[in-house]
Design a protein around this nucleic acid. Structure first.
Lengths: 143, 143
DNA sequence: CAGAATCCGGTATGATACTG
DNA sequence: CAGTATCATACCGGATTCTG
């Protein structure tokens, strides 16, 4: 990739971003971009979506085991808010003991695609970020 | 897209996610996916990256005006942490009054690509989410 | 099993004032 | 202009206990 190609792509991305940000200013309601980012910007939503993307359906305690470190409370809260936003469905089976299954909706699957992009980026560039942090720490306390 | 195609794509995404999550378990250090999500999961980082993606370079107060509602303090904190992670560069010009320019690094631009995917999703599906929320609110207080 | 309710601390964020 | 320093606070999220 030569300089010209880089420039072209950068310009293209800039145009896309400008469109998005312009859109976010329109209308009387809050910015949809911020709104969605707030939703997925919490500690567990994206992880829940990722794990739900690995199976057709998952039960509450299955998710609890898969998402390492999540508390019962936060799993409940997270799933409810994802349900409210139409990203997952919650199905209760009238049995005893109770069984509840969660699965991604079509909307949830469409988000999964974008999320995979992001975590793939994270996976690929994690070493670069770690290195940058080390370099920053080193220049912080040189003596 | 027929049922088979949907299934195939869903299976493919599931495989990708499994790879990513498996990777995140490896090694003694913390999960890189969570690490990066924590970084960009704060309130302002993604917005700063998006705006920096619209121009070659931006000054402190230019960003301040562009990112509506951000406080001086949070802009500073956000930019510093992005700098620490190697996503933006900070250039101080020895002038008076001082001038400081921020611009995305190559790493930052690569993240911008994934972020654009995400916010584009947000832009497209914001109405669907809004509708889901309304439906949830309606079923909440039916009487 | 799958939660609901409650309490509680830490941290992220905001407001304000001061400075090189 | 581009911060830093300090204080105030809201709310996120964890631990615990109780329930259908």
């Amino acid at each position: 990739m030569d300089i010209t190609a880089v420039d072209t792509q950068a310009t293209k991305m800039a145009g896309l971003v400008i469109d998005i940000l312009a859109f976010s200013k329109n209308g009387p309601q809050i910015c949809p971009v911020r709104d969605v980012l707030d939703r997925i910007g919490d500690k567990w939503s994206l992880l829940a979506i990722l794990h739900l993307g690995t199976a057709e359906a998952l039960r509450f305690n299955e998710l609890r085991k898969l998402i390492d470190g999540i508390s019962q409370r936060m799993l409940t809260v997270t799933l409810r808010s994802l349900e409210t936003d139409g990203l997952v469905t919650r199905t209760v089976y009238a049995e005893v003991p109770p069984r509840v299954e969660y699965r991604l909706t079509g909307l949830g699957h469409s988000l999964l695609g974008a999320v995979i992009e992001l975590v793939t980026w994270a996976k690929v560039h994690a070493p670069a970020i770690a290195q940058a942090r080390l370099a920053a720490a080193a220049s912080q306390v040189p003596a």
